[in-house]
Amino acid sequence: MSVTLGVILAVIGALVAAILAGLGSVFGVLIAGKAGTGVLSEKPQLFGRVLVLQALPGTQGIYGFLTAVILLGRLGLTGGNVPPLSDEVGWAFLGACLPIAIVGLISAIFQGRLAASAILMTAKQPGSAVRGMIMTALVETYSILALLISILFINGIPIQ
């Protein structure tokens, strides 16, 4: 059993997806959370709605994680059997991970900003929390598209 450069590249791809998209969500949830704590200090009864809005930018991290798990599954690394990958295939897997890694990182941060303003809107008008949720989720659409492209490529790239 040998770990080829191809395997290393593919694993780096999986890690990049999990790390960058995860970091994006960290920032996004942080930005939304900061706005949330400010609102809760005045209106603690809004906790439920604020929490939901704060959780929205957290999905990109899940998407990155998901991509990493699917790639590891495709490589057979979860079972411990590593197929010998050529360098080219390794590069292809690394590339396939980039959409969710990059789009996830950036969209989560911007979604966090939008979630923060939706939280402020909720503070003024508690009834409009769901509208804020939907508007915030529009940003997520593009990370979903990126996730799909990553997954479709990971599934499509031939290993042998």
Binding site: Y63, L66, I70, L148
Partner: peptide
């Protein structure tokens, strides 16, 4: 119509996280 591909993304994310928890 392509926007409905999010259905696939959501199914996959809950299915994969569920199976990772089981693992």
């Amino acid at each position: 119509i392509l926007s409905y591909s999010r259905i696939l993304a959501l199914i996959l994310s809950s299915a994969v996280i569920g199976s990772v928890m089981n693992m």
